[in-house]
C-alpha cells in the first residue's frame, strides 16, 4: 500500500477517463508524486503518472535461474557425491533424467519470488482494520491524490481537479 502524503488533496471521480485526464493535467502543471486509487487496473495510467516498470520480473528471473541451479545441484550432489548407488546400470550423473526436477524447482522458486515480491513491492501485510480513503474505492470510485504542501498549491490543485470533473475534494493534513 502506498503511503498517503502528509499534506495534499484527494479528488474523487466517478469516471476513470476523468481520473486519467486529471492525472495527466496535474502532472503537466508540475505536481509531483501523484497517486491514484482505482477499483481495477487502468492500463496506461502508469505512463500518464510517470510510474516506472516493476522490478518483480527481474527478481523472478533471478529466482528461476537460482531454483533450477539448486534443483540440479541437489540431484547431482545426492546421486554422484553423497551416496552413489548404481540403479539399473544407469549413469550416476543421469542429467537428462534430472531435467524435470530442474524445471519444476526453477518454476517453483520463481513463482514464490513473484508472489512474495508482490507483497513486498505493494507493502502488503495482514491488516484487517486498514484505513482507506473511501469504501467505494474498491467498488466504483476513483481517487487522485495530489501532494501539495502550501495553501496556494492546494488551491491550484483544487481548481484543477474541479475543472476535470471531480465530484468530491478532500484536503489532507489540515
Amino acid at each position: 500500500m502506498a503511503l498517503l502524503p502528509k499534506k495534499g488533496l484527494v479528488a474523487f471521480f466517478n469516471d476513470p477517463d476523468d481520473l486519467v485526464h486529471a492525472a495527466a493535467q496535474a502532472r503537466e502543471e508540475g505536481f509531483k508524486n501523484l497517486d491514484a486509487y482505482t477499483p481495477y487496473p487502468i492500463h496506461g495510467i502508469e505512463e500518464v503518472m510517470g510510474i516506472g516498470r516493476s522490478w518483480i520480473p527481474k527478481a523472478a528471473l533471478a529466482a528461476l535461474i537460482a531454483g533450477a541451479t539448486l534443483g540440479f545441484t541437489l540431484q547431482y550432489w545426492t546421486h554422484v557425491m553423497d551416496w552413489p548407488i548404481n540403479i539399473g546400470g544407469k549413469p550416476l550423473n543421469a542429467w537428462p533424467a534430472f531435467m524435470v526436477i530442474v524445471f519444476e524447482s526453477g518454476v517453483l522458486l520463481a513463482a514464490l519470488t513473484n508472489f512474495f515480491g508482490m507483497f513486498i513491492a505493494c507493502r502488503l501485510l495482514p491488516n484487517a482494520f486498514v484505513q482507506t480513503l473511501d469504501d467505494d474505492l474498491t467498488n466504483d470510485r476513483f481517487a487522485l491524490v495530489i501532494p501539495a504542501k502550501t495553501e496556494e498549491m492546494q488551491q491550484e490543485a483544487a481548481n484543477l481537479v474541479q475543472r476535470m470533473g471531480a465530484d468530491e475534494i478532500r484536503v489532507l493534513g489540515k
Binding site: M1, A2, I56, C122, V130
Partner: peptide, 23 residues
C-alpha cells in the same frame, strides 16, 4: 492484506500477475 488499490500497487500487481501466467 490491506490492499487499497493504489495505481503504484496495481503496476506491481499486474506485472506479477502476468509473470504468473508465463510461469
Amino acid at each position: 492484506m490491506g490492499w487499497k488499490g493504489s495505481v503504484r500497487d496495481w503496476a506491481h500487481y499486474e506485472r506479477a500477475y502476468a509473470q504468473f501466467a508465463w510461469l
